[in-house]
Amino acid sequence: MTDPLDVITQSFREPGLVPGYEISSILGSGGQGIVFKAKKTAIGRTYAIKFLRPPDHVNPTTWRNSELGNLAALADMRHPNLVAIEDRGETKSIPYLVLEYAGDQSLKTLMTQRRLGLKDGLRWLRQTADAVQYLHDHGVLHLDVKPSNIYVLDGRAKLGDFGLVRLQSHSGAVDLSLAFGTPEYVAPEVVSLHRASPVSDVFGLGRTLDDLLIAAAVTDDRQPASWLMELATESTAMEPTQRPSLIAFRKRLAAPGGIRKVAFRSLRPEPRSSGAKGSPRFRSLRG
């Protein structure tokens, strides 16, 4: 099957593809789109440009108009823990978003490289929760909160990748009939009901906290080898609240009980109230 973004990847060095920018290379791609590194010719500053991938079996015009509306809602968003949005537009019938270039250091990168300590991780997660709450306060759901979308720039967390953002309805919920994010970070109500609300983003924060606790255990040489072996052999499909090794680690973790409480409450498998605001609870986390 032909990728709708082939028209972009085959012509990204074409002058004027995105007016005012010179695209140089591909930074990455995924199910929701492809990201390029670019320079704003007027000032020579580096940016990231994300082109959104149209979903299969959807009217292209309907999808494009919907996405352009979602991107317009982000145009004036400014928060110290959000990747800054410079511009938006459409080229070759593909919507795009011009973003602050946040580099290549994300929470996922730090976890993979075993360089993420608990204290820094919790601080960056609190900052991410502040950004999520800011979006919610402005009627926007992110719907793709996960470690690879949380960048660390100049010692500060910045939530990026706005390819799945949706505007909330008056009820606080939104129908998701087209696509949703990375499976392990998607809330149960999104999967089963195709409906999302602010607490759906809280689930992504909870999963990220879960990953952070595991990363802290792997980084900490004081953790017993038997625990690490148990973690490595468990099914990753199991609900985190049911994983015995993770429960054991939380008990061993020399941290306030509030961390365990936040993780468990955020990852409850049953659908949560669509009107709840859960992001503030992350602000109390301390390492």
Rank of each mutant, 00 (worst) to 15 (best):
A187D: 12
I259L: 05
R13K: 15
T182Q: 04
P15G: 03
A276M: 13
L74Y: 05
P54V: 03
G155T: 01
I26V: 14
K108S: 10
G20F: 08
P19M: 09
R78T: 04
A255C: 11
M1R: 07
H79P: 07
L193I: 13
R252M: 02
T112P: 05
R222T: 14
A129K: 03
S197G: 01
S235C: 04
K261D: 11
E67F: 11
I23G: 00
S274K: 07
D3F: 01
D144N: 09
S11Y: 04
A157F: 02
P240I: 11
R126Q: 07
A255P: 00
V35S: 03
L71W: 00
L97E: 02
R243V: 15
S266W: 09
R123Q: 12
R123Y: 02
D220F: 03
Y134S: 11
M229Q: 14
R53L: 00
F36Q: 05
D87W: 03
G160L: 03
F162T: 08
L141N: 02
L118G: 04
S148W: 06
S25L: 04
S24K: 07
V58F: 05
Q10R: 13
T233V: 14
P198W: 02
R283H: 15
T61P: 00
G44V: 09
L99T: 05
S279E: 13
I34H: 07
K261S: 09
G139T: 06
K251Q: 14
A237Q: 10
K39D: 08
R53M: 00
P256N: 07
T182F: 04
E90H: 06
H194N: 13
S235T: 03
A217M: 14
T182S: 14
V190N: 04
I23H: 05
D221A: 15
T41I: 13
H57N: 14
V165E: 06
W63Y: 13
A255M: 06
T41Y: 00
P147G: 08
V58D: 01
H136K: 01
P54N: 00
K119S: 14
H138G: 06
R78V: 12
T219P: 03
R115A: 14
P256D: 11
S274T: 14
S11A: 10
A216Q: 05
F162G: 11
S274R: 09
G258L: 12
K37A: 05
K108L: 15
A276T: 06
P55G: 00
L153C: 12
L212R: 09
R114K: 14
S200E: 02
S192R: 10
T41F: 04
R207W: 02
L82T: 00
L122N: 08
L167K: 09
Y185R: 07
V152S: 12
G89T: 02
R88V: 04
D211E: 15
G44I: 14
V218A: 13
R156L: 15
N65P: 00
D220T: 05
M1A: 10
A216H: 09
L118H: 08
G204Q: 07
G139F: 09
A42F: 06
A263V: 04
S11L: 11
R260D: 12
G172A: 01
A225P: 08
E22V: 06
R222V: 06
G139E: 08
R114F: 06
L118F: 13
T41M: 12
